[in-house]
Design a protein around this nucleic acid. Structure first.
Length: 675
DNA sequence: TTAGTATTCCTTTTT
DNA sequence: GGAATACTAA
């Protein structure tokens, strides 16, 4: 084996850091010997720290950074991990293969798409594009315009994806979830096949293909499998509890094909992605699947006060499955969690605002507080109240930046340049033109797709003859816009392409089609700023889809004054892995959280309880749980009396404090031990 | 065939 | 209370 001598100083610094920054169990895990390792890391136990230090340790031992594969589950976790890693190993971080499963899949597939039947310039479909193509495929299969009870494209799309991710036949899932359409199953399977064909013809991959085609590379091409095994001598998987069968097979088969070094980190109590096919057994049975695997446990919680840890332990104990564990807080005593009922959802929003302002006055910066809710929808009332009180906040749920209609339009322009066979992008662009509806768009696409160079065909008289008279002027403008975008050398200068789009007819389209057109044009200008950091259009598009952030976070240029930042509103799912000094969890009512829907599914209640566990374990110092005593369904529906969530009532009452609101007009609240 | 209007559906969570 | 869908007029 080759020996690499590190700079003495940097090696010493690292050794110091290991002594100073890690406790004994953390150090043991971070420096575990090669082989299969499973690190069970409770909330706040330094999981990210251990995984990043392990990477640093491997590099210090002489493992080349480009031989390390570090996969995480969500974009946020990936970014967090890379940032932390950079602070330890510096610029070498750029060589480590770090990112989400889909991100890594994309990178790998770019260099070997050909044998799989795709071009290296394939484009990636988001959920909406998938639905568009799938609707066409359903039409191909004769599923449109029949009896009305068939699943819609988005429902079927979800079923196809779920079937893939849990490795079960589509027919079985359809029979199980939509028993009324059993006789249509053969046609539904046809539609799924046509969908796959359309994707291939359009040289497009959806999110699942980024995993599925990667998987084919491993199973169908032994040389590629061996190559990946050689390349990635050390694999680390974060959030193992959220991986599904497909994902775990990817990493485990690469590890087995190569050196057999795989470290998985996770916490079974925080498995909250069952709806996406996450397989609980991936972490529970890791030791069985990989005999000889070493197990490490991190059970000291550095994040939360003993009171908060006691509460969270008392909650998760109601789940019967999972590794038994009891977290121990390493922090001095603090305040017990507080439970506050409010008259209704409006009062709940007012209360949250007041508590947040109180916290602010006590010197807690807004960015050190967060409101975490089960459903994105739960934040709407609160947002209105925050706006009216002038509290600065950031939403981390809902539409992602690239999912907004105008951004998708701009991406469609770029996509047809990169991949002229991208049917979904072409249709989107054509439908923007006045006088062209689905039928004409289909006819034009049929003409374009029949030729070798759709971009050149666009400008022919033959295509123009398909456009109705009143649309011809607009269409000519569109053709010349495409020419100008091409002339801007977009492949290597994406920012120039976006500038060209803004100079063409598209801004006028925005003004006639969308609300708040000026904001949308400003968004596109922002996109141009982002694009200026890229020298490859293909990478820009892939990054937007695979690493882009939620609308309004950091993609949109936020004013960075303020000093103490903004309050965070987030779904619990998006909050995973993060922490705040004060955390508020609203709307803790039965039928809300846990949701009635989840209770109907096997394992649904335990999954919901894990979601609750993730929420409450985000709090460092203070945890506030609220619920409305009444809710009204819809806008003007009847007022219903609620009951508090079982996640509150099942915990021993001595572990939290109850507070009540004193008056309705003058919102002040009292409690036994405060003030 | 398109564009505008009425109506119905459904409301997790993410890549 | 909001978007996708179905219906109707041009």
């Amino acid at each position: 084996m080759r020996k690499i001598t590190l700079h003495k100083s940097s090696n010493d610094r690292l050794r110091d850091a290991f002594e100073r920054e890690l406790n004994a169990p953390q150090r043991a895990a971070a420096t575990a010997p090669d082989g299969f390792n499973l690190i069970l890391a409770g909330p706040g136990s330094g999981k990210t720290r251990v995984i990043t230090y392990r990477v640093a340790y491997l590099i210090a031992k002489g493992v080349p950074p480009e031989s390390i594969l570090l996969v995480t589950f969500t974009r946020r976790a990936a970014r967090e991990m890379v940032g932390r890693l950079e602070s330890i190993i510096g610029p070498r971080v750029a060589k480590v293969w770090a990112g989400t499963f889909h991100h890594i899949g994309n990178r790998l597939l770019r260099r070997c798409a050909e044998p799989l039947g795709f071009g290296p310039n394939f484009t990636i479909l988001d959920g909406e594009d998938q639905n568009d193509l799938l609707r066409l495929a359903m039409d191909d299969a004769g599923l449109i315009g029949t009896g009305s009870l068939l699943p819609k494209a988005d429902v079927l799309g979800h079923l196809i994806s779920f079937a893939f991710n849990v490795r079960r036949p589509l027919a079985e899932l359809v029979a199980e979830r939509h028993p009324s359409v059993t006789e249509w199953i053969p046609k539904i399977e046809d539609a799924a096949r046509y969908y796959a064909e359309r994707k291939r013809a359009a040289n497009c991959m959806d999110y699942d293909d980024l995993l599925g085609q990667w998987g084919r590379l491993i199973t169908e091409f032994p040389d590629q499998r061996a190559r990946l095994g050689r390349q990635f001598t050390h694999i680390l998987v974060d959030e193992m509890q959220d991986t599904n069968l497909v994902q775990v097979e990817l990493v485990e088969s690469i590890a087995r094909a190569g050196t057999g070094n795989l470290t998985a980190v996770g916490d079974d109590a925080q498995s909250i992605y069952k709806f996406r096919g996450a397989n609980y057994d991936n972490i529970l049975k890791f030791p069985e699947r990989n005999p000889g695997a070493k197990l490490f446990r991190l059970e000291i919680n550095y994040r939360s006060t003993p009171e908060i840890v006691a509460f969270t332990n008392a909650s998760i104990v109601h789940n019967s499955s999972g590794f038994p564990k009891t977290l121990v807080s390493a922090r001095p005593a603090g305040l017990r969690p507080v439970v506050i009922p409010t008259a209704d959802a409006y009062e709940e929003a007012e209360l949250l605002c007041q508590l947040i302002l109180d916290g602010h006055e006590q010197g807690i910066g807004l960015s050190r507080m967060a409101v975490l809710y089960r459903n994105h929808h739960d934040s709407i009332l609160l947002q209105a109240e925050l706006v009216s009180r002038g509290i600065r906040y950031t939403v981390r749920s809902g539409l992602r930046f690239f999912e907004q209609a105008h951004i998708k339009d701009v991406l469609a322009f770029l996509r047809v340049i990169v991949n002229p066979r991208d049917e979904a992008a072409w249709r989107r662009l054509l439908l923007l033109l006045p006088g062209i509806g689905p039928a004409k768009a289909g006819a034009i696409w049929a003409r374009l797709s029949a030729t070798a160079d759709p971009l050149a065909t666009l400008a022919t008289t033959e295509v123009m003859s398909l456009v109705p008279a009143k649309g011809k002027g607009y269409f000519a403008g569109f053709v010349s816009d495409i020419r100008k975008i091409q002339a801007a050398r977009p492949e290597t200068e994406p920012a120039a392409a976006i500038a060209a789009i803004l100079q063409g007819g598209y801004p006028a389209t925005i003004r006639t089609r969308y609300e708040r057109p000026e904001n949308r044009v400003a968004d596109i200008e922002q996109l141009g700023v982002l694009a200026a950091r890229y020298d490859s259009l293909e990478r820009l598009i892939a990054d937007l889809l695979l690493a882009g952030d939620v609308y309004g976070v950091d993609t949109l240029g936020s004013d960075e004054d303020g000093g103490d930042g903004t309050l965070v509103l987030s779904t619990i799912h998006q909050a995973k892995g993060l922490e705040w000094s004060r955390v508020f969890v609203p709307r803790l009512i039965e039928d809300g959280f846990p949701s009635a829907r989840a209770l109907g599914e096997p394992g649904g209640l335990e999954e919901e309880r894990r979601v609750f566990y993730v929420a409450v374990t985000r709090a460092m110092d203070e945890l506030t749980l609220t619920y409305p005593l009444t809710v009204s369904r819809g806008g003007r529906g009847p007022t219903l009396v609620t009951s508090p969530s079982r996640f509150l009532t099942e915990v021993d009452a001595s572990l939290y404090e109850r507070a009540t609101i004193e008056t309705e007009s003058d919102l002040s609240w009292s409690s036994g031990s405060r003030t």
